[in-house]
Design a protein around this nucleic acid. Structure first.
Lengths: 228, 228
DNA sequence: CGGCATCCATTTTGATACTG
DNA sequence: CAGTATCAAAATGGATGCCG
């Protein structure tokens, strides 16, 4: 069963041969915030059946982009994690996300699903290295029933699923409000003032947090605007 | 005919809804080096039939990523060009190309096609902004029967199909050798020494040219290496 | 040449039922 | 849960044929 290829000696085409099939980049997006189990992956990717998910995971394993692991005790359950090559698809994916933030976001549609992890990735996409120069802090985000943490270290950011070991500050916020932080121009300050978010921990770290992310100016395409 | 969507309120997914279908990103890659005619696009994309090409182009038009233009006299023939939104897919595509250069290139396979324009994009992917600080120069590349030009201006690069207006220097090189400049670690100096390339024009500009591009260290995935 | 329409063989996908 | 097996629906590719 030969797999389909563009048959082009071109770096972009070769990359798309590996990760350009439907669902593949979104699967990697899920794994960018940390290892995930089969069931969690499927729950995040509505419309992707178990058969195709299994096939995609097998493909990623075969190509050395992900591997199957066993979660540490007491879980001991199987999960999937990215390899180094897989992790390095982060920059291209974030670049696609930046484009989307600028040209394709707008309002959430009725039929669209949403998971806090996506907005966490949105934070990474909006992260302003320059503004984080000299800062070293760990933040924990509690969004409805999911927990993430972001480790900022002098211009770099790492954002993963799960609690932080020693957070400098903790932000508790509703999923609803959190998606507006990246999707629309809502600021953390405003979210706190309206009671949608609450914070605790080092107030200096919290103050710095507010300036770390810069949304690209949203610029809907002609096709997105309602016909006149 | 409802178009398929991931139905996720996520910048990456929204982007892939627009450009994630088969051929679409490669089509945009072709247009990144300048407007192209229907026939030229099809010639570059072996395996893409006229029907699907027409459908993809229509989709890009509808979504405001490309538009149909009429080439200036004396050509007067129709062609397709990117809109601003389409142009801005350059960074994500170059990021995918950088990943591919590092993790997926290796030797050219027998069945793979190749076009100089792809390697020109490879140059953009390898461009080192810092090394180009303070440089302002226009280079013309003549690769077999195709001509490109690159305009460098203080850390920025623009690489387009077609001759330059007032090139500071001209590089004539075989397609064969040119693809090794980005695909393998061949340096321009070596290419000249072996007679695969010749240059003319401002020698200072030519000297600066040699330091402008940095290949990522090639790092084949486990799956790429032959089984032991 | 540019571009759409049609027909058809193959793949890919989506959805669901089923097994350890 | 994790993952296979199965089947129907959709997307692709390739070959033409047509029309300005």
């Amino acid at each position: 069963m030969e797999q389909r290829t563009y048959n082009q000696y071109c770096a972009t085409a070769r990359t798309l041969d590996l990760v350009g099939e439907r669902w593949t980049l979104l699967l990697i997006r899920e794994l960018l915030t940390g290892p995930k189990r089969f069931g969690d992956l499927q729950a995040s990717l509505r419309g992707l059946g178990t058969g195709l998910l299994a096939a995609r995971l097998k493909h990623l394993e075969r190509e050395g982009l992900a591997h199957k692991i066993t979660l540490p005790p007491p879980a001991r359950t199987p999960a999937y994690a990215l390899t180094e090559a897989g992790e390095e698809l982060g920059p291209p994916i974030l670049e696609l996300a930046r484009w989307g933030l600028k040209w394709a976001m707008g309002e959430r549609r009725e039929t669209e699903t949403f998971h806090p992890g996506w907005a966490v990735l949105g934070l990474r996409a909006c992260f302003d290295d320059a503004a984080a120069a000299g800062l070293r802090a760990v933040y924990e985000f509690r969004i409805d029933d999911e927990v993430f943490h972001a480790r900022i270290d002098d211009g770099t950011i790492e954002a993963l699923h799960g609690p932080a070991q020693h957070p400098d500050a903790t932000i508790t916020i509703s999923q609803e409000a959190f998606l507006r932080l990246t999707g629309q121009g809502l600021t953390l300050t405003e979210a706190i003032e309206t009671g949608a978010a609450s914070t605790s921990g080092d107030s200096e770290a919290l103050h710095r947090l507010k300036g770390l992310f810069r949304l690209p100016p949203s610029h809907p395409r002609k096709a997105d605007r309602p016909a006149s």
